[in-house]
Amino acid sequence: MSDNLLSVNLCGMHLSNPTILASGVFGITRDLLSRASRNGAGALTMKTITKEPRSGHRAPIIVSFESGMMNAVGYANPGIEEVCREYADLSDVKCPVIGSALGETPEEFAYVISRMGKLPVSAIELPLSCPHTPGFGLMSGHTDPKQAAKITAAAKKATKKPIIIKLSPSIPNVGEVASAVEKAGADAINCGNSVGPGMIIDIETGKSVLGFGMGGVHGPAIRPLAVRCVYDIYEAVKIPIIGCGGITTGRDAIEMIMAGATAVGVGTATYYRGERALALIADELQEWMKKRNYKSLEEMRGIAHGKK
């Protein structure tokens, strides 16, 4: 893969290609991050870490439907203390690693971030947008512009590493929230998380399938929604955007970049295309750029806005 055509600088991180493994998918242990890095990702996002260990929601935690998936993992993680041990050495991970930190309050966010900042992660992402876990994200008002700005400001004080705020395509005023966190010092926006919550009912038993009863909807079904959100955010802020939501092929990545994304998050595509989904997407992206004679991602970024 020709490095310079796809390479991108995101908050000082050098990515060999713009694909980033989304948080919570596959790479949830140090050894799995290492494995994922050998499968061609531009960067990897760690699973989300809280102050205390969490067992997460009951299974089923991930289910499929005709045009996507739903999950309600419930932030299962061993807690920041344990994570500081497991992830202390990431030398065999061959691409930048983005940490993911979560708290219920700005103070708790700051605590987890200050500890995580000492790990060999290149940036820290804060999911303010989970649609299915009480105490967090959409279920606790984290995406209210004022609260989001407060959390961002606390995060910036807790570490010198770049802070990425992960928003939800479920928020109608996503541009407004993005603008608020940019003013509070955010270095980038990720849009976004799964949307919803949604629900799938097994008609034979009449019971909701996910263990938590409801969950975030992700995958191809939400792609147009995510693209529009990235488009709105690009209008509202100057900081870089990671576009995430249903990206399955190189074509989908191109669409997201044209809406204004600097890099693209990929998660559900690993279900459809296997572990090498990110490399396949990067290859298809590059092939198309060559065919159309694009010399860099920069040339097509945001062109849907008609400004370039």
Binding site: S64, D202, R251
Partner: peptide, 17 residues
């Protein structure tokens, strides 16, 4: 490229027996 869109498998959902 659009013609190469992968088929969306839907095997991760319980079937009642």
């Amino acid at each position: 490229m659009a013609s190469n869109y992968p088929s969306l498998k839907n095997e991760a959902i319980p079937i009642s027996y």
